[in-house]
Simulated assay, not measured.
Amino acid sequence: MKNKKVALVTGGTSGLGRSIVLEFANSGYVVGFCGRRKQEGEETLSLLKKQGGEGLYFKTDVTQSEAVRNFVEAVVDKYGRIDVAVNNAGISGVLKNTAEYPLDIFDSVMDVNLKGTFLSMQFELKQFLKQGNGGAIINVSSALGLRGKEKAGPYSMTKHGIIGLTKSAALEYGANGIRVIALCPGGIQTDMDDVFYANVPNPEEVKKERMKSYALGRMATPEEVAKTCVWLCGDGAAFITGAVIPVDGGKTAK
């Protein structure tokens, strides 16, 4: 652990989050990560250790302030500090027009995506300020933080909100050497992406048509987005803050 940097990742138990955890470990970081599903968290930790990494899984609901505080404190107690943080925890909701969108699902999407990111940033920023040596925060937004999508209003709403929060925090804490960046992936080949197609007739045809909207003609792999995330936390991106970085194969270039 000596001389290794410490990365903190929310929503690190599956999909993109799991790839981010493993990529940080591959890049020489110690990784503390959280998620609500214990089994998947333990599976991710096992994968991390199999590739020679070191890390900590902490079962956490990012919508609860005390739970987030406990997670950040657990990582700091074990490893002494945090150097970078990635706020990836999020849910997609359902595909429904705005007038018909279920309020209970709306509340869940707001709580996890927006409130969860806000709470995580609060405790990460306090720890960075306490340490006094800067730091980097990557907030995972989405290409839908830069555009709209029919039947995905609440999800798009939260991802736009994350960009606003990112820019504000970058301005607030830049003088402290803390960088804050919004990462905006397009479609990623994960189980979460499949949720969007759960109630869509002929999903394979819809997916095929969707690929035409990407300049590269395909969605990203989780590993591609994870590598960008780790790079943004490193020295090569030392002068990047308050930025919105699309990783979307040209989706938002139109």
Results as ranks from 00 to 15, higher is better:
V9H: 07
T10Q: 00
T10F: 09
G15I: 04
S19N: 01
I20A: 02
A25L: 08
G28H: 09
G35W: 05
R36P: 05
E42D: 13
E43I: 06
T44H: 10
L47T: 06
E54Q: 12
L56F: 06
Y57L: 04
K59Y: 03
T60M: 08
T63K: 15
A67T: 06
E73A: 14
V75C: 00
V75N: 06
K78G: 01
Y79A: 00
G80Y: 05
R81Y: 07
R81K: 15
V84P: 05
A85P: 04
V86A: 07
V86G: 00
N87E: 02
S92V: 14
A99G: 02
E100V: 07
Y101M: 04
Y101D: 05
M110I: 13
L114G: 02
G116W: 09
F123P: 00
E124T: 09
K130G: 04
Q131W: 04
Q131Y: 02
G132T: 05
G132A: 12
N133P: 00
A136V: 15
R147K: 14
A152S: 15
G153Y: 08
P154K: 12
M157W: 13
M157H: 13
T158D: 14
K159V: 00
K159A: 03
K159W: 06
G161P: 02
G161M: 05
G161Q: 09
G161W: 09
G161A: 13
G161E: 04
I162T: 05
L165V: 14
K167C: 08
A169V: 09
A170L: 02
E172A: 13
Y173Q: 03
I178R: 04
C184S: 11
G187H: 00
I188N: 11
Q189T: 02
Q189C: 01
D191S: 09
V200L: 10
K207A: 01
R210V: 05
S213V: 08
Y214E: 05
Y214V: 01
A215I: 07
T221M: 13
P222H: 13
E224C: 05
E224W: 14
K227I: 06
W231K: 01
L232K: 03
A238R: 15
T241N: 08
A243G: 10
V247I: 14
D248I: 01
K251G: 06
K251V: 02
T252D: 12
T252W: 11
